[in-house]
Each structure stands twice: as C-alpha cells, then as structure tokens.
C-alpha cells in the first residue's frame, strides 16, 4: 500500500482541496451554459475557468501546493512525476510533462498515463506499482485537462453533451458536461496517518471502442479485484464515474449490482465539476477522501477504448 502525503485541487470552484470541498458542500456548481465560447460549436454546458489557463502553469500550481503539504524534496532521485491527461497542452502530452518535472528540478523521465477517462485512477495505480516495486519512494500524480474546440466539437459529434447541468443516474439524464481542473496527490512509501491506497485494478471490456459493455464486464472485474480482502459492509462510499450519458450510468449500475455493492452510498461529482477527463480520477478521489473522512471507499471510472479502472482507499 502507499500513503497520501498531500493533495490539492484547482477548479472553477476554487483553489485548494478544502475550498473545493466547501463549495460542493454549499451546493455550488461550476457548470454554466456557453453559447459562443468556441467558433461553430453548438451551445454546451461546462465548468470552465473564468480566465484562460496555461496547461503547464496550472499543473505546476496545483502540484506545488500538494508537494508543500507533503513536505517532500521534489528534486530527489526517488521522486517521479506522473501526469494524467487526455489532450495535454494543445494535443502535446509529453512536452508539458517534461516542463512540469523540470520546473520542480526533477531529473527523472516523467510518465504520462493516457488511458482515456480512466487515466486519473490508472495514474494512481501506476504510482502504487512503481513505489511498491521499489523504483521510487514518492510519486507526484497530477491530473489536468483544459477544454478546447477540439474536445467540445468531438463530444458534440458523438451527441454526448448536454446543454443543461448533467443529472447522473437520473431517469431523465441527457448527457455529460465537460470540465476543467487540475488536481494533484503525492503518494508515498513513507507511512503516514490518513488515506492509504490499498488496491487497484484495470480491465478492458473487449467489447467496443466507444461504448461500454452492456453487462459492465470490465468494471465488474475491477470491482471484484479491489473487493478482495474486505467485507462489502465495510465499503462506506462508492465514487462512481456518473457521466450522465445513457449508456455509462446504466452500465455502472449493472456492474455495481453484480459486485453486490448496490446498498453502498454513491458520490457522483460531475454536476459540480463537469467531466474533467484526465483530472477526473485524481480530483474525484480527493473529493471522496474529504467527503468520507475515514473508512473505506472505492473510486471507479470507465472510458473510451473499453477500459475500466477502480481503486480502494482506507483511512483509519
């Protein structure tokens, strides 16, 4: 297992994990209707920063706070930077990752996890494996995506976007909202009071590249894996993906039922942050840590390419 030493969220709802948590508890949402944000695209509802953000700068700012809280020396040889993003800095993924590591004086090659919407959970699983294999002592996991005409037009071509605030798991759900955010967690081999990442699993549906398995096969296998060694009654919260698309939520419901977790309270955060893509798995994990405070929770995600991922976290 690996230990959480520090975390941070920057989103349109505020700067800092605590501020974002307070905003959500107060019922504030970052979602707004945009009618002429990008040329040609149809009106869409999204959570977007008021001021345009520089990708690298945003990642650096969020990591800076998490690293300061963790109190680690980011220049050390036993620290690795792991970036979770889908489109990076205007389609470039590795150059910004190198710029971020360089900013902190870290000489190791950074890793970009590009596993579609599951990337933020997969990045934490990668951190766990690298740390447990003894290759690194600390991992700075950063999740970030900035919304562009490229992404919005693509999701609209899929008819996946709603022009209203999304309604995960509602009968009248009409599609997803995109979002921008930068979240960071410092994971470590160093024992520390607080949250530990105990288990992680990634499975493919082997069914379709853009639609989920109707029986939630990949996600069910992830849940089955991370449930090993714990009682279902001890799971206090399920951080679902909850994109509010017709197929995602139906698939998740089936996977949750197959795993016997239908009585566990769920947290679906996209009505507050939108679907922050590469940031989602990191941001929503931090939010679940704050929502639950102690106990055990599972964070799960699914994405294009038929990939699914889940992690189990515990705080005594």
């Amino acid at each position: 297992m690996i230990y959480c030493l520090g975390h941070n969220i920057i989103s349109p709802l505020g700067e800092g994990s605590e501020q974002n948590y307070q905003a959500v508890v107060a019922g504030r949402s970052g979602l707004k209707l945009y009618t002429d944000r990008f040329a040609d695209v149809e009106p869409f509802c999204a959570s977007i920063f008021a001021e345009p953000q520089d990708f690298v700068d945003l990642c650096v700012r969020t990591a800076q706070t998490a690293i300061a809280e963790a109190g680690i020396d980011a220049t050390a040889k036993d620290v690795v930077f792991i970036l979770s993003t889908t489109k990076g800095d205007n389609l470039d993924l590795i150059t910004p990752a190198k710029a971020i590591a360089k900013h902190f004086g870290n000489m190791n090659s950074p890793i970009v996890v590009s596993n579609a919407c599951t990337s933020g959970v997969c990045a934490q699983i990668t951190a766990k494996r690298l740390i447990e294999s003894g290759l690194y002592r600390h991992a700075v996991v950063i999740g970030c995506d900035i919304q562009t005409r490229f992404i919005v037009s693509g999701f609209q071509s899929f008819k996946a976007l709603s022009d209203e605030p999304c309604k995960p798991f509602s009968e009248d759900r009409r599609g997803l909202n995109l979002g921008e955010a930068a979240a960071a967690i410092v994971w470590s081999a160093e024992p520390h009071d607080g949250w530990v990442l105990e288990a992680g699993s990634i499975h493919n549906d082997a069914n379709h590249i853009s639609g989920p398995s109707r029986i939630g096969e990949g996600l069910y296998r992830c849940l089955r894996d991370v449930l090993q060694g714990v009682e279902r009654e001890d799971i206090k919260l399920l951080g679902v993906h909850g994109t509010a698309t017709l197929y995602n939520d139906a698939m998740e419901k089936i996977a949750i039922e197959r795993a016997g977790l239908q009585d566990v309270p769920i947290s679906a955060l996209k009505p507050y942050f939108g679907h922050t893509m590469g940031a989602a798995g990191v941001l929503e994990t931090i939010m679940c840590m704050q929502l639950l405070q102690h106990g055990i929770f599972i964070k799960m995600l699914s994405g294009f390419g038929g990939v699914n991922a889940a992690i189990r976290l515990r705080c005594e």
Partner: peptide, 29 residues
C-alpha cells in the same frame, strides 16, 4: 474523433483477441 486517444489501439487489440485483462497506454520521452 474516437481515435484521438492513443489507448484506442489497446482497445482494438483487446476486442479482437477477447482480452478482458488490463489495457494501459503510456506516453513517454
């Protein structure tokens, strides 16, 4: 648009060969 993610190739391989284990894609220097 569906191919604007590099992990789609891992999905295509998984579908063809019925691999329901892990698929992951990393972008590296």
């Amino acid at each position: 648009f569906v191919y604007t993610l590099p992990n789609i190739v891992t999905g295509e391989i998984a579908i063809r060969h019925h691999i329901q284990g892990e698929t992951s894609f990393y972008v590296l220097d």
